[in-house]
Simulated assay, not measured.
Amino acid sequence: MTLLRTKTPEIEIDHVSMRYQTGSSEVLALNDVTVDIQKGEFISLLGPSGCGKTTLLRIMADLIQPTSGSIKISGSTTKEARLAKKYGIVFQNPVLYDWRKVKKNITLPLEMMKVNKEEQEVRVDRLLELVGLSEFKDKYPWQLSGGMQQRVAIARALAIEPEILLMDEPFSALDEFSRERLNEELLSIWSKVGSTVVFVTHSIPEAIFLSDRVFVLSPHPGRLSKVVDIPLPRPRRAEMRESTEFYQLITDIRNSFEGV
C-alpha cells in the first residue's frame, strides 16, 4: 500500500522488503512497504508479533539493511542520518547502566559526543525537569520503578536533541495503569520537543491515543495493510479513551488486519 505524498516528507520509505535466512529457508519479514512520514508527526507502527514492525524501525535506524528498497531521511541515507545524530532510540528495555546515577545515564551520549561540561549540565537539568525526575537525579536505576527507568531512557534519547525519536514498544512491560500514565507523559514531552516520533506497539488503544496516523502491519509476510488517520483533537486527554470516537477507531483498525 502506498500513501500519496502531498508534502516533502521527513522519512521516505520506498518499496522496503526484508528477508532473513533461517537455516536452509528464507523468511520474508517485510514485503514492499512504501509510505511517507511528515516532519513533527507522531506515527505508530501497529501489528501483532511477527509482522515486521521492529524490523522496519531497525532499518530506519540504520541498525540493519533492507534486502531491497530504501529509506531516505530528509533526503539523506539512513547511515548519513545516523552519523549526523538525527536519531534518538528508546528500546523495549531501558538499557541503563546500574553503576551510573540517573543524571550520569542521561549525560552519557553527550560525553561520547564531547559536548562541553557546561552544556551537558544545562541540557541534562532541562531534560530531568521535562521527564519529571529532577529529584531523582542522584538515584541509581535499580532504585527506580520500571516506568521511571523508561523516562530516564527517553531523556537520554533526547539528550542529543534528535530530529527523530524511534521507540520500540517502550511501555510493553508495564502494567496498564503505568502504561496509560506514561502515554500521557510522552505526549506532553513530545509537544515540547517537537521531534518526529515513530512508535512501535501491538496495542490498538495505545496507538490511537498517541498517534496522528497509525500504520497497520499485517504478518506472513509483513506488509502495510492500512494507514489510519486519527482525528482526535490534541492535547489528548485520558477521558478520550472512553469516547464513542475512540471505540469506533479501535473497531476500524481491528477490522483492517489481514491474515490475523
Rank of each mutant, 00 (worst) to 15 (best):
D168F: 03
K192Q: 15
K72W: 07
T67C: 06
S68I: 00
V198H: 10
I59T: 11
E245K: 14
G88P: 08
F171T: 03
P170L: 05
K104S: 08
D36A: 11
R237G: 00
A155W: 05
P94H: 06
T34F: 11
R179P: 06
I43L: 13
V27W: 13
P94S: 07
P48D: 05
S195G: 03
S17D: 05
L133H: 07
I73V: 06
T22Q: 15
L30F: 08
L224S: 08
N105P: 04
L165W: 04
I43A: 09
A84P: 09
P205L: 05
M113V: 00
S243L: 05
K39S: 12
G40C: 05
D252Q: 15
R236Q: 07
V16F: 01
F136Q: 09
E245G: 04
S211Y: 10
D14M: 06
S68W: 08
V131L: 04
K7M: 04
K39D: 13
N255I: 00
G222E: 11
A84N: 14
L144Y: 06
S203V: 01
R213A: 02
I59L: 06
E41R: 12
L45G: 08
S68N: 15
E161Q: 15
I253W: 14
A153H: 06
M167Y: 04
F246W: 11
D36L: 00
I43D: 12
P170A: 03
S225I: 00
Q149S: 03
L127V: 03
V198W: 06
M112K: 14
D168V: 01
L108P: 12
I89W: 09
L127R: 13
F215I: 07
S203Q: 09
L128H: 02
N93Q: 15
T22W: 09
R5S: 12
S44E: 09
T55I: 02
H202L: 04
L187G: 10
S243H: 09
E118C: 01
L144I: 03
I250K: 15
Q21N: 12
S134R: 12
D125W: 04
R82I: 00
V197C: 07
S74P: 06
E26L: 07
S25A: 12
V227R: 13
G47C: 04
T22D: 11
D138Y: 08
E185A: 03
V131A: 02
L45K: 14
S211F: 10
V35I: 12
Q248I: 00
E163L: 03
V193T: 12
H15Q: 14
S134K: 14
S49L: 05
Q65I: 01
P231T: 01
T54A: 06
Q65N: 11
P109F: 07
V200N: 13
V216Y: 14
T78K: 05
L63S: 09
D62I: 00
M18I: 02
K192D: 05
